[in-house]
């Protein structure tokens, strides 16, 4: 659960049609963003509902850096007002996320950044972004050998010799 702190009204300006939210990153950067933009995040939406119940404004503390948070905000800003099936809580989950050209460019980042973004998207419950990141990671490892996958994602072989040579591990068609 995130830590929620009460904030002064002056910290969060604006009383326009779209309210403003204060997001605080793990490196203590304060980022003000319109609520509309972040409404794609089910996590944020739930937090906002909680605010309405208490009639108090809060900042939302998030467990990832401002760099990652800004990337997520960029994604949400791009799709502001767009309907994405994956993010519709009332829709049946699609079989697979569609490939969106803009997402491919947006996620053309290094491996660690990609992993941070998908983790943040998962935390914020933005399913469309999780799906796009998952596809980007799948693209990285598809067609690679086991050794190459380990190399790409910084994973070591931790199988015992028995596990490695068990019959079921050889189901490679």
């Amino acid at each position: 659960m995130p830590t929620i702190v009460s904030v002064d009204d002056s910290t969060v300006p604006g009383e326009g049609s779209s309210r403003l939210l204060l997001l605080v990153s793990s490196d203590n950067k304060h980022i003000v963003v319109e609520e509309d933009i972040m409404s794609r995040s089910r996590f944020i939406s739930k937090q906002v509902e909680g605010f309405e119940a208490t009639s108090q404004r809060h900042a939302i503390l998030l467990p990832f850096s401002s760099f990652v948070l800004n990337k997520v905000i960029e994604y949400c800003s791009h799709y502001r007002g767009y309907y994405l099936l994956e993010d519709d809580p009332d829709a049946a989950p699609p079989g697979r996320s569609p490939v969106r050209e803009w997402d491919q460019e947006f996620l053309d980042v290094d491996r660690n950044m990609l992993l941070r973004i998908i983790k943040a998207a998962h935390y914020l419950e933005i399913k469309s972004l999780v799906g796009s990141c998952a596809r980007a990671i799948a693209d990285m490892i598809r067609g690679k050998t086991t050794e190459e996958m380990r190399e790409i994602l910084g994973v070591e072989n931790d199988f015992t010799p028995e596990e490695e040579h068990s019959p079921s591990s050889k189901c490679t068609g």
Partner: peptide
């Protein structure tokens, strides 16, 4: 232990499963 510390290991199982299913 190296694997535990690897960034990819911090992903939730359901995300890894989603990645595998795309593959």
């Amino acid at each position: 232990r190296i694997n535990t510390a690897a960034p990819v290991s911090r992903l939730a199982p359901e995300i890894l499963a989603q990645i595998f299913s795309y593959c």
